[in-house]
Measured scan of single mutants.
Amino acid sequence: PAHPYDRLKTTSTDPVSDIDVTRREAYLSSEEFKEKFGMTKEAFYKLPKWKQNKFKMAVQLF
């Protein structure tokens, strides 16, 4: 299930529990994912792991 970005980011005051914290981005809706990352999930997962992590750090999901 998708969760709002505000509850997934590492600085959230009301974090979602029971998620894989190493894959926070996977819980974003497709729309919100595209808004935050500027690309689709499919394109994101084709990137090298280090680049994925760099993007995730930039949007507080790492």
Rank of each mutant, 00 (worst) to 15 (best):
S17C: 15
T40F: 03
T13F: 07
A43N: 11
K34D: 08
K46I: 13
E25M: 09
N53D: 14
Q60L: 15
Y27D: 04
D6A: 00
F62M: 14
D6K: 00
K56S: 02
K34S: 14
S17Q: 15
K56Y: 03
D20S: 03
V21I: 13
A58E: 13
Y5E: 08
W50P: 02
E31W: 10
K34N: 14
E25Y: 06
A2D: 12
Y45P: 00
P4N: 07
G38D: 04
A43G: 05
K49I: 14
V21R: 08
V21A: 10
E35Q: 14
Y27A: 04
M39E: 00
K54A: 12
T22S: 11
K9R: 06
P1N: 11
V16A: 09
F44L: 00
N53H: 09
K41F: 08
N53Q: 11
T22C: 14
K56T: 01
L47V: 01
H3S: 06
E35S: 11
D14M: 11
Q52N: 00
A43D: 14
E42K: 11
K49Y: 07
A26V: 10
K36W: 13
E31I: 09
K54R: 13
M57W: 13
W50S: 09
F37H: 01
K41S: 06
M57S: 07
Q52I: 01
K9G: 07
P48E: 02
D14F: 07
F62R: 14
K54E: 14
P4V: 04
R24P: 08
P4I: 04
L61P: 03
F44H: 00
T13G: 06
Y27W: 04
L8T: 04
P15A: 05
V16K: 03
K34I: 14
L8E: 07
F33E: 01
G38H: 11
E35P: 01
V21L: 05
K41W: 08
A43Q: 14
D14S: 06
K36F: 12
N53T: 12
L28I: 03
Q60F: 14
P15T: 03
P48Y: 01
L8S: 01
A58Y: 12
Y45E: 11
Y27S: 05
F44C: 01
Y45M: 03
D18P: 07
D6F: 01
I19Q: 05
W50K: 04
G38A: 08
R23Y: 06
Y45N: 03
E31M: 08
V59C: 12
P4C: 14
T11R: 02
A26C: 13
L28T: 01
K46W: 08
Y45R: 07
P48K: 02
A2L: 15
F37V: 02
N53R: 11
T22L: 09
F37E: 00
E31T: 13
S17V: 13
G38Y: 06
T11Q: 07
D14L: 07
L47Q: 02
P48I: 00
H3T: 06
M39A: 00
H3W: 15
F55T: 04
E42P: 06
F33K: 00
K54M: 14
E35H: 10
E31D: 12
E25S: 05
P48H: 01
S12Q: 04
T22D: 08
G38V: 05
S12V: 03
W50Q: 02
L8W: 05
R24Y: 08
